[in-house]
Write a protein that binds this DNA or RNA. Structure first.
Lengths: 348, 348
DNA sequence: GTGAAAGCGCTAACAA
DNA sequence: TTGTTAGCGCTTTCAC
């Protein structure tokens, strides 16, 4: 493997000149530069990332970190959405010539962040992208103390100087609910996309409640169900709602897969969607399209891209900066599951 | 940030003793070691990965590389299966104290491997795990020339000195087909899980053909359909098969999502599954379970774990070793979609 | 515009 | 058992 010395010798210059030529950090005569570049090409030289990292104190890596116990990595979203997010990150790391390190904790303990902290302390990464963190996720305070760059993706952390990029889940929950109210519904169920300590879940839920309040509808605890990432959680939710003496006429599903479960179950019970039961959801994944479900578009590509862009700004910067909360727009894609503008459609 | 010098000074030893104590690479008196470890703990010292990497010529990272253009990362498998694979890799990298770098090409050109080669040349990674490569994927010859460690996951490369870890897709294709034949079927359709230049797809297809041959059934080109990762490709396949004057009575679906499409479509056409049309599939994802589809279990956890274990063996080794082809066992999980032992079941 | 040289934080050969 | 020291391959300051 060629080193900078080999290049210097072959090009008959000093190693500092080679370094200047490569990085543009010093003046180099055009002919000299040309000669150096030719030798670099010929010897297929690439600077060692370790050597460079040692002196620049930058690893050239950022970390995509999933602060969940092992069972949950990447299962919180549809496959294509994860792909979108990676593409978004990919776009900006390519621009910066950075690499992406993927990390998570094997331990089931929620606040164990040993893997992440080890990455930080060994300086294996220059910044961290947090994917879908939980509320009150404590390990970040250590990062704040170290002034280590990080950005939260996929949720909002209130009252803390933490940079975030996300859709506004509160607003989305509000919008979905308001949409159903505008269509005449007053009895509206809500299925959370997951446990409420996930910010994303809680925010959607809060938005739902706020919309009810603004429309003088009293929140009814029986209309609330905690779901998860399986279709059956939608089925269970509907079953529970239908067992009530006064069941809801519309449901805000926490995520598309739940909406699918709800819709299938409703149809199996000979209920008309949206006639008997209207459904709106979040994500707008392939599932929503396939099953004709109205859903709020979650643009994970933009979230990934903006989050990494923001992270790079922090990595470059030495002086303090204002924390930023970047909100990615998220519109409701109206389909047949909630009635209203479009006519109902049947599928399957 | 504390350095090895700080530790040496505080513990009143030389830096080499500290290094010996940390790495176990030299003799250190028990009391000395204890003292050093206490100081390390107290100062929260972690060795710099760049500095260490520079001298050891190891980055401490392996790369999970998806040699596809951007649209395909991680969409070839069910989300939970991807998760399984990551967990498998995670288990062995944790053991080795390694990190996982995730990379893919942004470029649409199939044989562009610039990102990967850059990782190799800058020595940012010590080895590469290839996820689901295509047949005749040329960039690996460069790696072979460099004697750079890599392992193929998810497929088989014939006649080349390339280490692989996978289920035996040929055998799986054979087994699925033979299972249907044993149930009395002679007219069996095959839907490929993707384009045939994916080894995984081609191998399953070859297994299918071999099983036909061994049972004196002539291969019928009209019974073959190239599918993809969408449910609709199953629907299309069935529609095409049904339009034949002599349609198949059974179908080997290339992957679960196709099987679901086929089953739904069959039911929509008032066909009985498995009475009118029997279905077997590959993957055994959540989908197969939900839809009562017989499917060959693909143990991506083991694939991930064994592949990384193998990679670490190669990274450690200096001398030539025999290439290995590790086959992960994959049994057929029989459910209601193909008839036979279990009674049919209806779902949805 | 170019070069000499120091030093980033570590490992490991060699000396003591 | 411990210490001294020479690099690993690069960036960067400072002379020229």
């Amino acid at each position: 493997m060629a080193t900078i010395k080999d290049i210097a010798r072959e090009a008959q210059v000093s190693i500092s000149t080679v370094s200047f030529a490569i990085n543009g950090t010093g003046p180099v005569a055009p002919e000299t530069k040309k000669r150096i570049m030719e030798v670099i090409e010929r010897l297929n030289y690439h600077p060692s990332s370790s050597a460079r990292g040692l002196v620049t104190r930058q690893s050239g890596n950022i970390c995509l970190y999933v602060p969940h116990p092992k069972s949950n990595i990447f299962t919180f979203h549809d496959n294509n959405l994860i792909n979108d997010m990676l593409q978004g990150i990919g776009e900006s790391i390519d621009e910066k010539n950075y690499n992406l390190l993927l990390a998570w904790e094997q331990n089931e303990d929620d606040d164990d962040a040993s893997k992440m902290m080890s990455l930080v302390h060994t300086r294996a990464v220059d910044g961290i992208l947090f994917f879908n963190p939980t509320r009150n996720y404590k390990p970040i305070y250590e990062l704040i103390k170290l002034k280590f760059p990080f950005v939260f993706m996929g949720s909002f952390f209130d009252n803390e100087p933490i940079d975030t990029v996300d859709i506004d889940n509160f607003e989305a929950g509000y919008r979905n609910t308001a949409h159903l109210i505008k269509l005449g519904h007053r009895k509206i169920g809500f299925v959370s996309p997951g446990p409420l300590h996930y910010l994303l879940a809680d925010d959607r839920f809060e938005g739902y409640k706020e919309a009810l309040k603004d429309n003088n509808i009293r929140y009814n605890d029986h209309y609330f169900h905690i779901g998860d990432n399986r279709e059956t959680s939608g089925v269970e939710a509907l079953d529970r709602f239908l067992s009530l003496k006064d069941p809801p006429t519309a449901i805000v599903a926490g995520r598309d897969i739940q909406a699918v479960g709800i819709k299938k179950r409703a149809m199996a019970c000979s209920l008309i969607v949206p006639g008997d039961i209207a459904i709106v959801s979040f994500e707008n994944s392939q599932l929503a399209e396939n099953h004709d479900i109205s859903s709020i578009r979650t643009d994970l590509f933009s979230i990934g891209r903006e989050a990494s862009k923001l992270l790079f700004k922090m990595i470059g910067r030495k002086k303090e900066r204002q924390t930023q909360h970047i909100i990615i727009p998220a519109e409701l894609v109206v389909r047949g599951s909630c009635g209203g503008k479009q006519e109902t459609s049947v599928e399957e």
